[in-house]
């Protein structure tokens, strides 16, 4: 396979696997955050904050894929 092809596959894996990882991380946090919000609705802000923290991983994946594809 050509190098460009491998690079594209690598870029896809970087985003995809990071996404799976973030999803696994968020499932527990999200459930707990919704539970906490049911007890006290003013937890919304902090709950959202906690829930989206693992998402940064996907952004890392995305940046890596960008570096692979464009640079």
């Amino acid at each position: 396979m050509a190098v460009e092809g491998m690079v594209a596959v690598g870029a896809g894996l970087a985003v995809g696997l990071a996404g799976i990882g973030a999803g696994l991380g968020e499932q527990g946090i999200g459930a707990a955050a919704v539970g906490a919000m049911a007890e006290d609705p003013s937890f919304f802000g902090r709950g959202l904050l906690m829930t989206v923290i693992p998402e940064t991983i996907v952004i890392f994946g995305l940046v890596v894929s960008f570096l692979l594809m464009f640079m």
Partner: peptide, 12 residues
């Protein structure tokens, strides 16, 4: 560092 890169989501 991760906070900084996090702003890449604006594009993503």
């Amino acid at each position: 560092l991760s906070n900084t890169i996090s702003y890449a989501r604006l594009l993503a």
